[in-house]
Amino acid sequence: MLAKENSINLTFFLPDTSSSEGAVFFDSGISAGFPSPADDFKEERLSLDRELIKNKEATFFARVSGQSMIGAGLDDNDLLVIDRSLEPEDGKIAVCFLDGEFTVKRLSVTANGLWLLPENDRYSPIQITEENEFVIWGVVTNVIKKL
């Protein structure tokens, strides 16, 4: 039996852009195979804000709670980067406000209307109808994971 998950509890955060210095970044690449000897590293500063946030006034963070998007790589407790200035498109992952609750799902626009698709076979797709209170709140641009 498929579980019906209409919402995922999301906790929202604003980005802290007060520090623009960034962390130390070694621009030599890091081998995922055999280590290679490196005589010198080119050291720079890397700001994750500059890498992940294109429009700071419209960007928010939210923490995922739930399992409906694990097939898309969004696991419980991951941190989403959400840009509210981007236009939602078919196939994009979006944070939506549906019937009083937030949910994150993949958008599917078909001849039969708009669908919110989970990425876990245990959950059912949600068709958006005129009866729903529905807003696409923002488009997910990145996910930050703890290992």
Rank of each mutant, 00 (worst) to 15 (best):
A3M: 14
A58E: 13
T17R: 07
N9I: 12
L107M: 12
L48E: 02
R45D: 10
V24A: 08
S7G: 09
V143I: 13
L74V: 10
K56T: 15
K42Q: 11
D16H: 07
Q67T: 14
I93S: 02
I126Q: 00
S31W: 04
A38P: 02
D40P: 01
P118Y: 02
V140Y: 00
K145S: 13
E51Q: 15
E89Y: 09
E44W: 08
D75P: 00
L80N: 01
T103A: 09
P88F: 00
R63I: 14
S18T: 14
D75I: 09
D121G: 05
F97V: 09
I144T: 07
D99P: 05
E5M: 13
D83Q: 08
N132T: 08
P35K: 08
I70K: 01
M69I: 05
P125K: 01
G73N: 03
K54N: 12
S47M: 07
A3C: 12
K42T: 15
L48C: 06
F26R: 12
V81G: 02
I144N: 01
L2W: 06
L114V: 15
D83T: 07
S7T: 09
N132E: 05
V81F: 01
G29S: 08
K4I: 15
K42E: 14
R122H: 12
M1L: 11
Q67N: 12
A3F: 10
A58T: 13
K56E: 14
P35T: 12
S20R: 11
L98P: 02
T110K: 08
D99H: 07
E57Q: 14
V104G: 00
A32I: 12
T11P: 02
L147S: 13
D76I: 13
T110V: 04
F61Q: 08
E119T: 06
D83L: 03
L79Q: 10
L52H: 05
N6P: 06
S124I: 06
A58S: 14
S28L: 09
V64W: 00
I53F: 00
S108F: 05
T129S: 10
E89I: 06
F61D: 05
E21I: 10
K56Q: 13
S124R: 07
K42H: 11
G29R: 07
G73H: 02
E119L: 11
